[in-house]
Computed example of a mutant assay.
Amino acid sequence: MSTQQKSMIWMLIPVMFSFFTMGFVDLVGIATNYVKADFHLSDTLANLLPSMVFFWFLIFSVPTGMLMNKIGQRKTVLLSIVVTVAALLLPLINYSFASMLISFSLLGIGNTLMQVSLNPLLSNIVTGNRLASSLTLGQFVKAIASFLAPIIAGWAAVSWGNWKLLFLIFLVIAVIACVLLGMTHIDESSSAETKSSTFGECFALLADKVVLISFLGIVCHVGIDVGLNLTAPKLLMERLDMTLAGAGLATSVYFLFRTIGCFSGAFLLAYFPMKKVFIVSVLMMVAAMIGLFTMQSLAAHYVCIALVGLGNSNIFSMLFSRALLHLPNRKNEVSGLMIMGLFGGTIFPLFMGIVSDWMQSQIGAVAIMSIGVLYLLSIIPAIRKD
Rank of each mutant, 00 (worst) to 15 (best):
I368S: 13
H326I: 05
L106C: 09
L135Q: 10
A247G: 05
V158F: 12
M338H: 13
V35W: 04
W163G: 09
L327T: 08
L230F: 05
L310D: 05
G345A: 07
A156D: 12
I354T: 12
G265Y: 01
V366F: 11
S191D: 15
M16N: 00
I260V: 15
N119Y: 07
F20C: 01
A157D: 15
L12A: 01
V126D: 10
D357A: 13
Y34I: 04
L148F: 11
W163S: 10
T243M: 02
V85F: 09
P273S: 14
G65L: 07
V366P: 10
N47I: 01
I144C: 08
K142Q: 15
A132P: 12
A207I: 09
L166D: 12
S80V: 02
T231K: 00
W358C: 00
F255Y: 13
N129V: 02
E193L: 15
L113Q: 07
S313E: 03
Q360G: 03
V141R: 07
K209W: 09
S189V: 06
I144T: 07
V303Q: 08
G182E: 10
A87L: 00
P150A: 08
T112A: 10
G341Y: 13
W163D: 11
S133F: 13
I315P: 03
P14L: 06
A382R: 08
S105P: 06
V308W: 09
K164A: 10
F170L: 13
L137D: 06
T198I: 11
L27G: 03
V82E: 02
F97Q: 05
S335T: 09
W155F: 15
N314L: 02
A300G: 03
L212H: 07
N329T: 14
G65I: 10
M183C: 09
A145V: 03
D357C: 08
T21G: 12
K195S: 15
G217K: 00
I368Y: 10
L101E: 10
F267C: 00
A323R: 10
S214M: 01
L256S: 04
S99E: 01
L240S: 06
A177I: 03
R258K: 07
I169L: 14
L137S: 08
G265C: 03
I260M: 12
L230W: 02
L92N: 06
Q360A: 12
S61Q: 09
Q5K: 15
W160P: 00
R330M: 14
A31W: 02
I13Y: 01
G364K: 12
S117D: 03
Y254T: 00
T346M: 15
L131W: 13
